[in-house]
């Protein structure tokens, strides 16, 4: 294993991602969880950048940090009430869940290493132009369907959340 600069950055960003993910999962205070989620999403965006997917990294920051996380904070503030003092992590089956997660990790590692160790090295930076050609060319149908899905989700959110305001 050669410790060149990309590898070191990779390890550092991966460690941040793992630690922040654990924070999201384990922390009791709900605002800290939101902050952890933000750090996690940023580290993932950094990894995307490292792997040459600069557009995805930008999207990650825009959509998640700017969109989902803010939405989550709004939701937290909307429904925040007195039960915040109660433990959110006391679980009747955390040992079982931990073993499930661990088993899944082992299985996925076994499953993915066979595929992924065929690929080596880092690829050059992908260009925006190529991506847009893919999206507007061969994957146009999927792109349009995704747009439709967003529209449906928007309507659904209005109906669900605003239903009893009338």
């Amino acid at each position: 294993m050669s410790f060149d600069a990309p590898t070191i950055v990779q390890i550092i960003l991966g460690a941040i991602a793992l630690l922040s993910a654990m924070t999201v999962v384990l922390v009791r205070e709900i605002m800290r969880m939101a902050i952890g989620l933000g750090v996690f999403l940023l580290s993932v965006a950094g990894l995307f950048l490292l792997y040459g997917a600069s557009f995805l990294a930008t999207s990650e920051v825009f959509v998640y940090v700017g969109g989902v996380l803010v939405l989550m904070l709004f939701a937290i503030m909307l429904v925040q009430r007195s039960d915040s003092g109660r433990a959110v992590l006391v679980s009747r089956h955390d040992i079982g869940s931990a073993s499930v997660a661990l088993g899944l990790f082992v299985m996925l590692t076994v499953a993915l290493q066979g595929v992924s160790n065929r690929f080596t090295g880092s690829a050059p930076e992908s260009s925006m132009q190529e991506l847009s050609e893919v999206l507007m060319g061969g994957r146009l149908v999927q792109y349009e369907i995704a747009g439709l899905l967003l529209l449906v989700a928007l309507v659904a959110v209005i109906v669900i959340a605003g239903g009893d305001e009338r």
């Binding site: 089956h93 499930v100 088993g103 590692t109 076994v110 290493q113 160790n117």
Partner: peptide, 28 residues
């Protein structure tokens, strides 16, 4: 959900238990 995950793990373990674990230990 936990039982679902556990079932997946157990089934995959059964499928791979013969050679994949060995393979994994050597190759990983």
């Amino acid at each position: 959900g936990a039982m679902l995950g556990a079932s997946v793990v157990i089934m995959l373990a059964i499928v791979w238990s013969y050679d994949a674990i060995n393979l994994w230990a050597v190759e990983v």
